[in-house]
């Protein structure tokens, strides 16, 4: 058996704090994972669990009023958290592409979208001449499945639909053939049909450009369709890592089971697992397992002993000491009548 290839990005015990009125509050608490070349890693979790913050950290970026308080994000061996701003600038956009949740915020409203893509190509020295940049830009737009690239290139962002804007942002992110593409809820807020088109476009692009992807979403159903492996985050900690098939066939953590159950519930399937109770409350986290207050299976010990990821199978890690006692996992949902 060959050893695994060197990962594209290796996140090691990442800690991020936010400034909350008067003190630093922790949002990402010692998160570690890695992504191999050409692999798509998903991250699932509810709003406010720290998944977007983690996505930003992969770009060596932290939002205003927040700070990195430990850990490392090694991109091809270089620690992005300790890189000088200028070098970071060179990597962002060129070697690591980023697609945010709201494409409108990523585009300059007062510039035709074609210019914006060409500008980012030129900023990274990817094209020698204007002419070349223009050709590359139109080629990218065609790759993104945008109809009539020439027409689209001349349009302003507000003249495009949400799905088209997201394609333009994707084109911009892929312009310099990045090694890693970070996507933060890229299809949330889009119609299902548009979402389906973006997802199948991503699969095509991965085959064609061969980049690794980090895909953040609250919807496990979406992650199931694009990811090789999935990490589940709760209150700033990873609570489960597994291959996509394994995660659905054999979910270990009660929280993961709850997420799958709510997905099935929302889809009108009768789930076998209890739904999630309550909501993530950051102001009332116990010392031990952070999920314990909402957990169906919690025991007094859960509230006091912190849990960390432990291997339970091939590439499958779960942060729950009770998982073997919990009744067997859900069947992957039958597809129903359709």
């Amino acid at each position: 058996m060959r050893g695994p290839p060197a990962p594209v990005i290796d996140v090691d015990s990442l800690i991020v704090d936010f400034w909350d009125r008067r003190r630093w509050t922790n949002v990402v608490h010692g998160v570690s994972f890695h992504i191999f070349p050409g692999e798509t890693l998903g991250m699932a979790g509810e709003s406010g669990c720290g998944k977007s913050t983690t996505a930003y950290a992969l770009l060596g970026y932290h939002r205003p009023m927040s700070r990195f308080n430990g850990g490392a994000v090694r991109f091809l061996g270089r620690d992005l958290l300790r890189l000088p701003a200028r070098e970071l600038q060179k990597i962002r956009g060129a070697e690591i592409g980023f697609v945010p949740q709201n494409p409108a915020t990523a585009l300059n409203p007062s510039m035709p979208v074609g210019h914006q893509v060409m500008e980012s190509l030129e900023a990274h020295g990817a094209c020698a001449t204007r002419r070349e940049a223009e050709d590359r830009c139109l080629g990218l737009f065609a790759d993104m499945g945008l109809p009539r690239p020439k027409v689209v290139a001349g349009r302003y962002p507000h003249q495009l639909s949400g799905g088209q804007q997201q394609r333009v942002v994707l084109a911009m992110a892929l312009a310099c053939h990045p090694t890693l593409l970070v996507l933060d809820e890229p299809t949330t807020g889009l119609d299902v049909t548009t979402q389906a088109r973006i997802l199948s476009l991503l699969a095509r692009l991965r085959a064609r450009y061969g980049m690794a992807m980090f895909y953040v979403s609250h919807n496990l159903g979406v992650l199931a369709q694009v990811c090789n492996r999935i990490t589940v985050m709760y209150a700033g900690e990873l609570i489960e890592v597994a291959s996509t098939a394994e995660l659905f066939r054999n979910p270990g953590h009660p929280y993961t089971r709850g997420l799958i159950a709510s997905l099935q519930q929302v889809s009108g399937f009768v789930g076998t697992q209890p739904l999630l109770r309550g909501l993530l409350r950051r102001d009332a986290l116990p010392l031990g397992c952070r999920f314990a207050p909402r957990c169906e299976y919690s025991q007094p010990g859960c509230f006091t002993s912190p849990q960390s990821l432990a291997t339970v199978g091939d590439g499958h890690e779960v942060a729950c000491w009770r998982w073997p006692d919990i009744p067997a996992g859900t069947d992957p949902a039958d597809k129903g009548t359709v």
């Binding site: 299902v192 389906a196 496990l220 159903g221 996509t244 889809s267 597809k335």
Partner: peptide, 9 residues
């Protein structure tokens, strides 16, 4: 277009 809540599809 519907995402299916199961992998392998």
């Amino acid at each position: 277009a519907q995402p299916v809540p199961a992998p392998g599809e």
